[in-house]
């Protein structure tokens, strides 16, 4: 075999290299104990998200969507089953290591935005620096780029209360993207938005997934969101249907 043929094969092999799923949920179950008894919030659910996937998770209220999202985000350990993000099980890590893992691998977007009211837009995006896995100042340029991309370049030093609802959600989105995570978990990200702002958010989430950098798992009731997502999964009574 000639030298040139070998090189061509190597390149082909690199292109087809098997990467682990961004998110792998396997037979995961979770129960909550309440005063009224035990509630099976998640009942042996399996789900896999490959890079580039944009999955909409929908279902009635209380069906376990948010619980599944928190478990997928390394925030809530399952009673049984396994969860892996980019091939690594975060629940095998200690609390501090898991926090660092979240900081580097997962981005969160919530319906309530959860912006910090006393920090301006730029600081709200940069708050991820407090996770401390990289030197301070590393993300400043990236934060500005993201905010410019989300049409918030003129609002850098405004506090959340001075922003519109749509702008606030875009700030939250920029915060989620700051550390270039492989997985974006969005819990009803358009729930409080008008159609125009919802479309902007969905567009950005779609762009992220389409770039192949990672995957998006989005809990939503919004039909527009389901339409934008590449895959839609329904959940009922703690099971995927």
């Amino acid at each position: 075999m000639s030298q040139s043929t070998n090189t061509a094969l190597d390149e082909a092999s690199a292109d087809t290299e098997i990467r682990p799923p961004v998110l792998s949920i396997s037979e995961v179950a979770k129960q909550y104990r309440t005063t009224e008894g035990t509630v099976q919030a998640i009942d042996h659910v399996s789900l896999s998200l490959e890079p580039g996937d944009f999955v909409a998770l929908h279902g009635p209220s209380g069906c376990g969507k948010s619980t599944l999202l928190l478990m997928a985000g390394a925030l809530l350990s399952p009673d049984s089953g396994t969860i892996a993000i980019s091939g690594e099980n975060p629940y095998a890590l200690g609390a501090e290591a898991r926090a660092a893992f979240r900081a580097n691998r997962v981005g969160f977007v919530f319906q309530q935005f959860h912006l910090i009211p006393f920090l301006d837009v730029l600081d709200n995006v940069l708050v991820g620096e407090l996770a401390g896995t990289l030197p301070h100042g590393e993300f400043r340029e990236r934060a500005r780029e993201l905010l410019d991309r989300f049409q918030l370049g003129h609002r850098l030093h405004h506090v959340p209360s001075k922003l519109s609802i749509g702008e606030q959600q875009r700030v939250a989105l920029a915060r989620a993207f700051l550390r270039s995570p492989s997985l974006i978990l969005a819990d009803e990200p358009t729930g409080n938005l008008d159609a125009e702002n919802a479309a902007i958010i969905l567009e950005h989430l779609g762009d992220f997934a389409a770039s192949g950098e990672g995957a998006v798992l989005m809990v939503t009731h919004d039909d527009r969101a389901k339409a934008v997502a590449g895959r839609s999964v329904e959940m009922r009574g703690g099971r995927l249907v």
Partner: peptide
């Protein structure tokens, strides 16, 4: 509490 929740979610350590 919401601020604590989001900070912890995005990876800020308990000691911070």
């Amino acid at each position: 509490l919401p601020e604590i929740g989001i900070l912890r979610a995005i990876g800020v350590k308990g000691r911070t």
